[in-house]
């Protein structure tokens, strides 16, 4: 194994991987998808009466939108899987924390009425 001691051999700070344009087709597709889901949000809001199921649909649509923004716009789909995991795995735990504390929130509601 060789080590780099000469200046200019090892340059982590200025390293830029080679990038190429993949065209705009995927980007516009993502745009229409995001727009479509937002319009669908709007429609469901007025068509469906408020309920837990409707909230579930809204949150699900939110996660779908997040997937397309992070995957296509932020290009994470095309990065190395290691990088994607470093970013996504902690967020899974945070989502777990949020849903856990929502549950605790409704327990607070019960306790306040005692």
């Amino acid at each position: 194994m060789e080590f780099y001691n000469k200046p200019g051999d090892y340059d982590a700070i200025n390293y830029i991987p080679h990038t190429e344009s993949h065209g705009t087709k995927e980007l516009w597709k993502t745009f229409w998808l995001l727009l479509g889901i937002t319009v669908l949000d709007f429609v469901i809001y007025f068509v469906m009466p408020a309920s837990g199921w409707r909230n579930f649909i809204f949150i699900f649509f939110g996660l779908v939108k997040a997937y397309y923004i992070v995957g296509a716009f932020m290009h994470l789909k095309h990065e190395k899987i290691n990088l994607a995991l470093v970013i996504l795995v902690p967020m899974v735990f945070v989502l777990g924390l949020i849903s856990g504390l929502l549950y605790e929130g409704s327990a607070l509601e019960v306790m306040k009425s005692l």
Binding site: M1, F3, Y4, D9, Y10, A12, I13, N14, Y15, I16, P17, E79, K80, N82, L83, V86, I87, P90, M91, V94, L97, I98
Partner: peptide, 29 residues
């Protein structure tokens, strides 16, 4: 793992931006 290589094949600046965004995501969370 020998050093002198970007394991994620991204530039230093972009990796730091991702790390910042992750911490910002925690803040919003």
């Amino acid at each position: 793992w020998a050093g002198g290589r970007s394991p994620f094949n991204v530039s230093y600046g972009k990796l730091m931006m991702w790390i910042f965004l992750l911490s910002d995501a925690f803040t919003f969370s």
